[in-house]
Design a protein around this nucleic acid. Structure first.
Lengths: 122, 122
DNA sequence: CTCTATGCAAAAACTTTGCAGGGAT
DNA sequence: ATCCCTGCAAAGTTTTTGCATAGAG
C-alpha cells in the first residue's frame, strides 16, 4: 500500500514531511529511531516528533524504547514482536507464531528483552 | 530473601541507599518509576539512578519504559511478563504461563502493550 | 479562505556526570 | 587505609512547546 494512501485513510493532511517519514519506515523495514535518520531528514526535529505523535494516535505506527534508551518507531501494518538483545543491542523481528496467548486483551506491541542466541554462544 | 542478602550476593557494598531502594521494590511488589517514589526517598536522585544502574548490571533488577515514557524498575527475582494498557496506562503483572516459546534466546523481560479487557469493554 | 503543519528557538522531562567529602570493608 | 558511595550542582539527551509563517484542502 502506498504511504499516501495510508495517510489519507486516517484523514491526515498529506504533507511532504509525513510522506518522507513513512517512506523511510517502509524502505528500512525495521524499527527506526530519530537518531538513526536525523542526518537524512529534510524536516525539523519538531516536525518529526509531532508527526510521529500524530501517527501513533492514528495507529499508523507504534513505538517502543530499546536498550539504548531511545524510542524506536515501526509501522503498525506488518505487526510482529521484536526481540532486543541487551548484550549487543540489536533489534530483530520475530514471527507472529511466537505471540503469547492473551485472550481478552488487545495486543498492540510486544517487547521481549534478553540475550540472542549469537550472544549466548560467545 | 532479605534485601541485604541480595546485595551481598552480588558483591556490592551494603549501603543504606541500596537497602532503601530494594525494600521499596519488595514492599510495593510492582514496577516502580523514580517519579513514583521520589517524595519518600531519602537519597539524592543521582544516588538513586547510580544504584539502579548498578542493580541492572548485576541483574538484581530490570527496567522498561512504560506508556508514560518513564522508566520502571522491578525485581528480577520473581520475573513475570508485564502488560501495559495504552489506554489507561496501568501496568499489570501477568503469570509465567503466558510466556512465548523462545528456544535459543535468554529472555530477560517481556513488554506487551495493548488495551486491557476492562478498557476494551468501556 | 480556513485550519493545520512547519521551522526555529527555547524549554521541559528525565537521567547522567564531575567533584569533593563521607562511609564500608 | 583504600576504594567505593554519596550529595550537590551542573550538564546531557531526548522530546515537547510557543509563536509566526507557509501550505493543504
Amino acid at each position: 500500500m502506498k504511504v499516501e494512501q495510508i495517510i489519507k485513510e486516517k484523514n491526515l493532511k498529506l504533507t511532504p514531511a509525513r510522506v518522507e517519514i513513512l517512506e523511510i519506515l517502509v524502505e528500512q523495514n525495521r524499527p527506526i529511531s530519530y537518531d538513526d535518520i536525523k542526518d537524512r531528514l529534510l524536516m525539523d526535529k519538531a516536525t518529526f516528533y509531532r508527526n510521529i505523535s500524530r501517527f501513533e494516535d492514528s495507529a499508523i505506527i507504534r513505538s517502543f524504547e530499546s536498550n539504548d534508551k531511545k524510542r524506536y518507531f515501526s509501522l503498525e501494518q506488518n505487526f510482529h514482536p521484536h526481540f532486543i538483545c541487551t548484550k549487543c543491542n540489536t533489534i530483530s523481528c520475530l514471527d507472529e507464531k511466537s505471540i503469547i496467548n492473551m485472550d481478552g486483551y488487545k495486543i498492540e506491541s510486544i517487547i521481549i528483552k534478553g540475550i540472542c542466541p549469537k550472544c549466548l554462544n560467545s
